[in-house]
Nucleic acid binder design. Structure first.
Length: 608
DNA sequence: CCCCCCCC
């Protein structure tokens, strides 16, 4: 029988995600289970997303969860890998986002099938205390704790500063990790991996301007900030991507909650701070990425920070939004990114990033570091001012994507993260672990202060409003506009066309209840299709043919329980302000799935 | 000395 790579699970669970030596080593593991997860599509809205498999792999001592890349799904469906299969992992990727490590198996080779589990492996996750609190912002964690192995992959040498002692004035080259307020007379040799816009502020304590940079060497990274005069002096001189000797800056304690740079300290550039460009750039790593494939974005939590790379399929013009909170106009631009996973996702650029984005090249590959995961339309991405984007970076992933897109990707259609393709409905994915009771939603004023809020609920239909259950809509794909009958044809004002017949679309208003109370939920076409199991055209036809059958269908729709993703939004109509609850997703209960989730919940409670 | 990261 094959020898499992004892200890590899611990390595995979603890290594720096950028440590290629760890994640490309040929570990021998045993699969304890393969489980299909997520993503059934009950609204009959068309394409089904690819299945994904979560696997449990063991080294005989410990086991951990991982995802199987979708291109390996066939190994599960064909039973090439099953429970107890022993295989060599040939390629893995690892992302680490908000305390949640995501290991994806990209390549493996089956060695043998055995009858039983080897050893008594323990769940490596079980006692993981402090996982959430460890590193709030993780994209940076990987860059800031490089192991020597990881550094050597990026650079020609794995040696660390301070050595060899550089010639001339830059005697004491310190590693960034070694900086503290107790050190003086240091010099760092670091690459600017990120430079912000110049920001101005004005508050009770005064006003001014500032900028920040992220500085990185192969020991770690640190944030540097320049205020006022230092902006004038240094902002033009520090360029993203270049390497500098920096000395005589002040080392302050970092306020961690405001920074996703993993360092206890940060630099403040002062009047006498010295900055000199360095042209001899060995030992100074370039940005390291932990790319999350676009199809796996829904594995990440809202507000997680991650790295992605994709082809820009579309780029909107710059528009301006009005930030209510800040009372100012902010330029923004939307990009649509796609990748080989077959998914597309929207990426929002802000401010200068939005304005300066070049549309000269039609479908560039762009690598993003440190972007925020949002839940608009299922999943969306947004840049922070600390995020970076690199167009056509000189890295393997970029070349791979370029080749794929030019040979086939450009012709492909892509799956969006949203269930409701129409765009009218939007909202977060259903989150079983975070179901709200209807009473809580009402009592705590979800959606109250003008800001729409998403929540998940599990509720049972009590009553469906029978009048105005649908409207005649434009049959043009994606239009959905109400059409008017004029002389026997149906006119769409938006498309400026007439059609022989409309396509009826549901506008559902229904009372639902859970153990805590009831609420009225509003839903569009997908909701009606899910509830009645037929299109609005079909339902109307039945109504006209046999009203009693229609009544029976309406009646039968009651008392069914669904998982809902809802959006609470304040709404004023006829001078009445109230909160309306829109359904962005509706899923019939899958009792097997629910039972498994409850079992897992019991197990996890028991494991603690 | 900022620390907001926005909108649909």
């Amino acid at each position: 029988m094959s020898q499992l790579s004892a200890g590899c699970i611990k390595l995979l669970q603890t290594a720096d995600p950028g440590d290629l030596d760890v994640f490309n080593s040929p570990y021998v593991v045993q699969f304890l289970s393969t489980k299909r997860v997520g993503n059934t599509n009950p609204t009959a809205s068309g394409a089904t997303p690819p299945d994904r498999y979560r696997i449990i792999m063991s080294d005989g001592t410990q086991y951990m969860q991982a995802m199987l890349a979708t291109q390996l799904n066939e190994m599960v469906t064909s039973n090439t890998i099953t429970k107890n299969t022993i295989a060599v992992l040939e390629k893995l990727t690892c992302s680490f986002v908000q305390g949640k490590r995501l290991v994806v198996v990209l390549g493996l080779r089956v060695l043998e099938h055995v009858a039983e589990k080897i050893g008594e492996p323990q769940n490596i996750d079980a006692p993981a205390s402090g996982a959430e609190t460890a590193t709030p912002a993780v994209a940076s964690a990987s860059t800031s704790v490089p192991t020597p192995a990881a550094a050597s992959v990026n650079m020609s040498s794995s040696s660390r500063p301070p050595q060899p002692p550089p010639k001339g004035r830059h005697g004491n080259i310190y590693p960034i990790e070694g900086l503290s307020p107790y050190q003086n007379n240091w010099t760092i040799k670091a690459r600017v991996t990120q430079k912000s816009d110049i920001k101005t502020w004005s508050n009770a304590r005064g006003e001014g301007k500032l900028f920040n940079v992220t500085l990185m060497d192969d020991s770690g990274e640190i944030r540097g900030t320049g205020f006022n005069l230092a902006v004038d002096e240094l902002y033009p001189r520090l360029e993203e991507g270049k390497v500098y000797y920096i000395s005589k800056a002040r080392v302050n304690l970092a306020k961690k909650k405001f920074s996703n740079v993993n360092n206890d300290y940060e630099l403040s550039f002062e009047r006498n701070t010295e900055v000199e460009e360095c042209h001899e750039v060995t030992n100074v790593p370039t940005i390291k990425y932990n790319f999350v494939p676009l199809n796996l974005l829904e594995e990440l939590n809202k507000d997680a920070i991650c790295d992605v790379i994709g082809v820009v399929k579309e780029a909107s013009p710059v528009t301006e939004i009005t930030s209510v909170k800040q009372n100012r106009q902010i330029p923004k631009r939307e990009l649509t990114l796609v990748d080989k996973s077959g998914f597309s996702v929207r990426m929002t650029l802000w401010g200068k990033q939005a304005e300066q984005y070049s549309t000269a090249e039609s479908s560039p590959v762009i690598a993003f570091k440190g972007v925020k995961v949002g839940d608009f339309g299922g999943r969306s991405l947004s840049m922070y001012s600390s995020s970076t984007m690199h167009v056509n970076p000189d890295i393997d992933e970029c070349f791979t994507l370029r080749g794929w897109y030019d040979s086939s990707g450009a012709e492909q259609t892509f799956k969006a993260h949203s269930m409701s393709g129409g765009g009218a409905a939007s909202g977060a994915a259903f989150n079983r672990a975070d179901i709200r009771s209807l009473d809580e939603v009402k009592q705590t004023g979800y959606g109250m202060p003008e800001k729409p809020e998403n929540f998940s609920a599990r509720a049972t239909i009590m009553h469906i409003k029978a009048d105005n259950i649908s409207y005649p809509a434009c049959p043009t794909q994606g239009c959905n506009k109400k059409v008017l009958e004029i002389n026997g044809t149906w006119r769409c004002e938006k498309c400026e066309q007439s059609y022989p017949a409309p396509e009826h679309r549901y506008i559902m208003s229904m009372a639902v209840a859970d153990y805590s109370g009831q609420a009225w939920l509003q839903g569009f076409n997908e909701v009606g299709v899910a509830v009645f199991g037929m299109t609005a055209n079909e339902l109307l036809e039945k109504k006209e043919r046999d009203p009693s059958e229609y009544n029976a269908i309406m009646h039968k729709a009651n008392c069914h329980t669904f998982n809902f993703s809802c959006r609470a939004k304040q709404d004023t109509y006829n001078e009445n302000t109230r909160i309306r609850y829109g359904i962005s997703r509706i899923q019939p209960l899958n009792y097997k799935e629910e039972a498994i989730a409850m079992r897992d919940l019991l197990y996890s409670a028991w494991a603690r």
